[in-house]
Write a protein that binds this DNA or RNA. Structure first.
Lengths: 127, 127
DNA sequence: TATAATAATAGTAACGATTATCATTATTAC
DNA sequence: GTAATAATGATAATCGTTACTATTATTATA
């Protein structure tokens, strides 16, 4: 079973465009509500399906935080900070990526594809 | 509302004892099935409630992996490797903790309480 | 440009992990 | 022993996500 040819979809591109324009690492639900304003017929299932597909195509990345998936159109190496008070996600300026990536080679656990580093605490606003 | 006094519970200690004796980072369901052999009346809700309580008391740690909570009675600083094929979790010998912990001070995002580093890939068995 | 093939959709049902509820039971302080 | 209350077991409810299916949109080709 080779992978099916992908057809253009207005919904998919609207979802991608929405995610690309924001920096708050939204959930599927948040993207859904936002894009629905533009495409009222939009279905939540369509959002999930396309986010998953965009992720497979490496046009975005996902990370699970607090049991919920958060999406990020920035696929560059960077880490996140989760505020346990307001539950918002922030980008960090952590530059340990290369360091940890190098270490991945020596973990002796198997083949490391990627890694994810998440910081937890209380953001400036909430302090 | 001050925190309620905690009473002894056979179930809670059995759950903690079970988790302490294993190194496979089980889910609540797995702990439930295991402890139920010893306490047949055990309820899944009781397992969740006590795991959450033990976590608050810092007797164990949780991390969400693949959308599911995994528990670990080893509260020492260490990181994990998740095999995307068999979906098992392994401890790693990564020793970047101090390095990342130091960096936490300089993130300029607020107050960092802790961090979590997770590696993803394919384990030796599955390769 | 019509037609045929099929990918994508909307709507909804189903699912799995977790949390909440509540009457009953166990622990503890007196 | 008795009263106060924390913890339990059973089950219902919730929430994020996935699966299903009839219909619609896209695309290749005649």
């Amino acid at each position: 079973m080779s992978k099916a040819i992908q057809k253009f979809s207005r919904q998919r591109e609207a979802i991608y465009k929405n995610l690309s324009s924001r920096y708050d690492h939204p959930t599927a639900e948040q993207i859904y509500l936002d894009v629905k304003a533009e495409i009222p017929s939009l279905s939540l299932g369509t959002v999930y399906r396309n986010l998953s597909q965009l992720c497979t195509d490496n046009r975005l990345q996902v990370f699970n935080c607090g049991g919920i998936e958060h999406f990020d159109a920035n696929t560059d190496n960077h880490y996140h900070f989760f505020c346990e008070s307001c539950r918002k996600l922030y980008d960090t300026n952590s530059d340990t990526f290369k360091f940890i990536d190098d270490e991945s080679e020596n973990l002796n656990v198997g083949q490391v594809r990627t890694h994810n580093l998440m910081f937890y605490g209380t953001c400036k606003n909430c302090l």
